[in-house]
């Protein structure tokens, strides 16, 4: 077990992603085991960092004074954040599993969960930027990390799922399409909730 994929999943995958993908190609892990023993720890990081950052320093949206929120509200937002990340991971893995047949990859669901976990890992770790809750600083850290994660997706799919790189490229592009739509949906849904009165006060 020492040098199996499990020892790689947390943090080693950060600096040796290709080895992690190669090791993942050899096993079909149980999805729940990956999800709750490994992925969950990563998913906890962004809400945790944002909770600490927002309660200590307050969010700076750019203009004016920092925005402080009560502990209750902050907890609610962090829980919502965790839920969205969890939901995002599971649905992306599901969609990846669903798409896989089209591209000749028939790995188990567990392997897809692990794959998406490795791809998202740099983002989870980079969310340490939330400790300094400044929108621009976060954008500066997270946007390059996002581009790096996309690169991992394109590199990782063919290795981990054992398909030719060209088919992997097609599948990764389809997943990017889904992720973009998911991101913009999230944006749209949160804006709608906000204008309907959930969140900071808006004069609508």
């Amino acid at each position: 077990m020492r040098d199996s994929i499990y020892s790689f999943l947390l943090f080693k995958a950060l600096y040796e992603p290709k080895i992690a993908f190669a090791k993942l190609a050899e096993v079909d892990p149980a999805p729940l085991r990956i999800l709750f023993r490994y992925s969950l720890w990563l998913l906890l990081l962004p809400p945790l960092f944002s909770f600490i950052g927002a309660s200590q320093f307050g969010w700076r949206l750019g203009a004016g004074t920092p925005l402080y929120m009560g502990t209750g509200t902050l907890l609610l937002i962090s829980l919502g954040y965790l839920f969205i990340l969890f939901f995002g991971l599971v649905t992306t893995a599901l969609i990846s599993r669903w798409m896989a047949d089209t591209y000749g990859a028939n790995a188990s669901f567990g392997r897809h969960v692990a794959l998406i976990t490795i791809v998202g890992e740099p983002l989870a770790v980079a969310s340490v930027a939330h400790l300094s809750p400044d929108v621009f600083f976060n954008a500066l850290v997270l946007i390059p990390t996002t581009i790096w994660a996309m690169y991992l997706l394109y590199k990782g799919i063919p290795i981990a799922l054992g398909i030719p790189p060209e088919r992997g490229m097609l599948m990764a592009s389809s997943l990017v399409g889904w992720l973009l739509v998911a991101a913009v949906s999230l944006l749209g849904i949160s804006m709608s909730l906000w204008t309907l009165g959930i969140g900071p006060l808006l004069g609508v």
Partner: peptide, 25 residues
């Protein structure tokens, strides 16, 4: 291939931004 992914994004984002509750922002 990649253009299709962004096509998917843009054609989804457009209708979404036409909702009054999103459009207002």
């Amino acid at each position: 291939v990649l253009s299709l992914a962004f096509y998917g994004l843009a054609t989804f984002e457009g209708p979404m931004m036409s909702f009054p509750s999103v459009n207002v922002v």
